[in-house]
């Protein structure tokens, strides 16, 4: 029985909600139960922001993720805040370009991905978020690889369809990355 409770956290503007939306739309395509809940308010404008996504085979109770089994972090304050909340055996994805410290817990799987540096090197603009997503999909199987493209179509407006390829490329780079 698949059940993923995902927290994506970092600064506003890093595309955290976007990751969440792709996961949510992939869940919709796969006809799963799901919820997507953003933090809202002034923090959207440059402060810390987060997004809770639940993907499940059962009806979703609370949409608020208290104990994630998948944590994606893109700044140090977010790692500080959520590290202890992750369930034992959960997975933490760290943008190691932006977060220099290591995860202290030993009962979780940690994936360090220099996503921001990779995006720069591969000329993928600000798509560090998509690189992280690629890694998340590979390691957690929270959504099927083949539904990602359809999910992207929901999230990327038709007038920006040219962004499709670069997003897919970034996701692929994340999938291919090995430390």
């Amino acid at each position: 029985m698949a059940h993923h409770e995902i927290v994506i956290a970092g600064f506003g503007g890093q595309g955290l909600l976007f990751i969440g939306k792709i996961l949510a739309y992939a869940g919709l395509v796969e006809k799963r139960q799901l919820s997507w809940l953003p933090s809202y308010g002034p923090e959207m404008r440059g402060g810390t922001a987060n997004c809770n996504v639940i993907l499940s085979d059962d009806p979703v109770g609370s949409p608020i993720v208290q104990h994630p089994n998948v944590l994606i972090v893109m700044n140090t304050p977010s790692l500080d805040k959520y590290e202890s909340a992750v369930v034992p055996g959960g997975k933490i994805f760290v943008d190691s370009t932006l977060i220099s410290r290591k995860v202290e817990r030993s009962d979780v799987d940690v994936y360090y991905i220099p996503a921001t540096q990779m995006a720069k090197d591969l000329e993928l603009g600000n798509l560090a978020n998509m690189i992280l997503l690629g890694s998340v999909i590979r390691e957690t199987k929270c959504i099927r690889e083949e539904t990602v493209e359809e999910a992207l179509k929901h999230v990327i407006p038709a007038r920006k369809a040219n962004l499709m390829d670069v997003n897919l490329k970034a996701i692929q780079a994340g999938k291919d990355y090995r430390p």
Binding site: A24, Q33, L34, S35, W36, P38, Y40, I64
Partner: peptide
């Protein structure tokens, strides 16, 4: 409430 307003669900 704010949660119901802001959350997305199918």
């Amino acid at each position: 409430d704010g949660t119901m307003g802001q959350m997305m669900e199918p």
